[in-house]
């Protein structure tokens, strides 16, 4: 590592972004996926309740993220991967992938939120808190799923593998997020933001630590 680490991370993110920008179909595909899913929800529910709105929001987002994150290591195959492997530290690869996926997830979450609010109605009472939940959730989900996507590209049929490996692992995160966002909609009598954010933070920290420990082994393959 001769270069400044933060600089390397930024360069790696920039590289990911320029690849995604170059073949726009991958990014556009995910956004289109979200728009279609939201539209289907809008068409199938004539009068949507806050409870259903909440779970649909997270389900649409979860499947959008699964599709979005799975490609993060898919594009790095063959000779190109060997090139990166020699060039940068695995930690830098992991951290920049997590940050990139976090930004991608955040973008998707905001789009889903905006679309659901336009198509159906805005059910959220405390929008500021809800945005906080979205940010924390995007971070936790991108940490968990980045590592899973690194594992799943090793097998055949990585998209299927991603869903099988990823969904059970993210269930605690998603449940906590659903509970947190229920709080922001006034569906809960006594909001419990503090404990829920603590759980989310603890799970993300544990998963991040594990990813940092195990990622170099997988990256070597």
């Amino acid at each position: 590592m001769s270069d400044f680490t933060l600089n390397q991370v930024l360069r790696y993110i920039q590289k990911d972004w320029s690849i995604d920008w170059k073949n726009k179909f991958s990014l556009g595909g995910i956004i289109l996926y979200i728009i279609t899913a939201t539209f289907i929800v809008f068409l199938s529910f004539s009068n949507i309740e806050a409870e259903a709105w909440n779970s649909l929001f997270w389900i649409i987002l979860l499947f959008g993220i699964l599709n979005g994150v799975v490609k993060s290591f898919l594009q790095e195959s063959g000779r190109r991967k060997l090139y990166y492997f020699q060039l940068v530290d695995p930690y830098i690869v992991l951290v920049s992938k997590v940050i990139y996926n976090f930004l991608l997830t955040l973008l998707m979450a905001l789009i889903t939120f905006a679309l659901l609010s336009i198509f159906t109605a805005n059910m959220v009472d405390e929008v500021g808190m809800f945005l906080g939940v979205i940010i924390a959730g995007s971070l936790a989900l991108s940490i968990a799923l980045t590592f899973i996507s690194a594992i799943s590209v090793q097998g055949q049929q990585s998209a299927t593998l991603m869903a099988i490996l990823g969904l059970p692992v993210v269930i605690p995160i998603v449940l906590t997020l659903v509970k947190l966002s229920r709080n922001t909609m006034g569906l809960v009598m006594e909001p419990t933001y503090k404990t829920d954010f603590l759980i989310l933070g603890a799970i993300s920290l544990i998963l991040l630590g594990l990813s940092l420990w195990l990622f170099p082994i997988i990256w070597k393959e």
Binding site: F147, I151, K220
Partner: peptide, 11 residues
């Protein structure tokens, strides 16, 4: 074996 071991710890 290596990938499975990594996932097992994660699991």
């Amino acid at each position: 074996s290596r990938i499975a071991a990594a996932y097992n710890i994660f699991a």
